[in-house]
Simulated assay, not measured.
Amino acid sequence: MRLRRTTTLAASLLAITLTATACGGGDDDSGDGGGGDEIVIGIKFDQPGLGLLTPDGDHVGFDVDVATYIAGELGYEPDQIVFQEAPSPERENLLSRGDVDMIVATYSISEEREESVDFAGPYLLAHQDLLVRADYEVPNEEAINDMTLCSVSGSTSAANVQRDIAPDARLQEFNTYSECLNGLERGRIDALTTDDSILAGYAAQPEHQGKFRLAGLELSNEYYGVGLPKDSEDLDAVNDAITAMVEEGAWDEAVAEHFGPAGYEPEAAPEIGTRPEA
């Protein structure tokens, strides 16, 4: 059973209550020692540098560090965090069904999404770009209309291409970026389009080094937020946690660790409450 703790104080009060019950000789013995207390956080499993499930079962990346820091500020130890995969098309459903407590998964804030979920943050500002083969040239933004692109279903990147960037481009949509990357490597598509932070992670993987490069186009502003259920009581607490991560230097440390090897330098941490221009 999942118990949500919105503040460290609430966690302390809960612990005191449980201890008092135990000392009073209560006969409810769950045997787990921690009351089954955990937080479930949706992340990506296939995004190097951001959210990646390694072969040995570890979760690593910038988003993972952000999620872990937030959980710590809410009173959870690392072993009380359950990471659940959050594919782009399923993020709103995961929150609305209560399958996860929050989502930290390159989740761009948009007016449309804010109709059904709450966003804390943002905690990162990225820009949409193209990942192309190393020998492929994109002379200008207009040329994208003649390309075959791939992105992920339900992503703002796919919507941006069709609506604003290159409405005449041929767009293929898959459930994961890994599928798009496979098509790019095999020459079935001309470019993978999504946020530069995501693309940099793929390009920096040892098996991909030298094969791909970023086109260097800033096609949109993508403000990553922490997705929460609509009307969440945890919104302020999560915003406070992100602020603390930035002020204490942990945000810069995570940026250096996960983006530094790719040569990608994201912009400074955005101000809490910042939103994309309509």
Rank of each mutant, 00 (worst) to 15 (best):
E248Q: 12
E77T: 12
F174Y: 08
D63I: 10
A105H: 06
E77L: 15
R275F: 02
D58A: 15
N182F: 04
L130N: 03
K44R: 15
N93I: 11
Y177R: 08
A244V: 01
N145E: 11
G187N: 04
D37S: 14
G260D: 01
I39E: 11
R186D: 09
L171Q: 01
T193L: 10
I109K: 12
G260V: 02
F83N: 11
I43L: 09
D190L: 03
D63W: 09
V64S: 06
G34W: 09
I198P: 01
G249P: 02
E111G: 10
E271Q: 10
A237M: 10
L14W: 15
Y136E: 08
A126Y: 00
G42H: 08
D168I: 00
E179I: 07
T8Q: 14
A262E: 07
D164A: 12
T17P: 01
W251C: 08
S151I: 00
G25D: 03
I198L: 15
A254H: 05
V100C: 14
R213H: 08
A158Q: 00
G33M: 09
K211S: 05
L184Y: 00
V138E: 03
Q47F: 03
M245P: 00
R91I: 08
A120N: 09
E233H: 10
P167A: 15
A278Q: 11
L184D: 00
G25Q: 08
F259R: 02
K230T: 03
G57C: 10
I272A: 04
L3I: 14
I144G: 03
L50G: 06
E179S: 15
L52F: 12
D37R: 15
E265M: 04
E77D: 14
